[in-house]
């Protein structure tokens, strides 16, 4: 049982149980506060009844014209809270906001191909592999340099589903900037 609500700056004081994880980066303060001040409705957190953080999703909207879309910047769920459908709930909140508030064409995300559990989950949520991004993840002493999967899901505004026609060739990271 959890409540999915907006993330608040004060949550930064108590999200350690989620961030002490090798796949979850703890960013500079400005990074979080910038997301909150720019896209408050796309930064959500799942909390237990006593307020313990269970997972969070940071998102944003970007792009122009038919490339206008919601983007998942970070999604993490605490070790104890996995296999509960929380990630699905957080993704649904982002998709709802991208569709109903920001009127986007699609939602996209980047994921490590080696994170097979996450890739499978996104596929189950309706995301397809749109393209591969070369050397997206830089070597940081924890993981070697790695491709990224750019996965997408079309929203109702993209009636012809043009945004999710997979590209045949990989792209470089700079080609993914909107």
């Amino acid at each position: 049982m959890s409540t999915i609500r907006r993330f608040h700056a004060m949550d930064l004081f108590k999200f350690n149980n989620l961030n002490l994880d090798r796949y979850t980066e703890t960013y500079d303060l400005s990074f979080y506060l910038n997301y909150l001040s720019s896209w408050p409705d796309l930064f959500t957190m799942a909390v237990s009844p006593d307020g313990t953080p269970m997972g969070y999703l940071m998102g944003k909207v970007e792009g122009k014209d038919t490339e206008w879309h919601g983007h998942v910047t970070a999604l993490t769920v605490g070790p104890e809270c996995r296999r509960l459908g929380l990630a699905r709930g957080l993704m649904r909140a982002l998709e709802d906001a991208s569709e109903k508030i920001h009127d986007c064409y699609f939602v996209d995300l980047f994921v490590r191909p080696s994170n097979t559990v996450a890739v499978l989950m996104y596929e189950r949520l309706g995301y397809i592999l749109y393209r591969q991004v070369i050397d997206y993840y830089l070597g940081d002493g924890v993981m070697p340099t790695e491709y990224a999967y750019d996965m997408r899901k079309a929203l109702p505004r993209d009636k012809d589903k043009k945004s999710v026609i997979p590209l045949k060739h990989p792209v470089t990271a700079d080609q993914t900037i909107f």
């Binding site: 907006r6 700056a9 004060m10 909150l36 001040s37």
Partner: peptide, 9 residues
């Protein structure tokens, strides 16, 4: 909506 929260933070 962030004003109060940022000030508290």
């Amino acid at each position: 909506s962030n004003v109060k929260d940022f000030l508290e933070f």
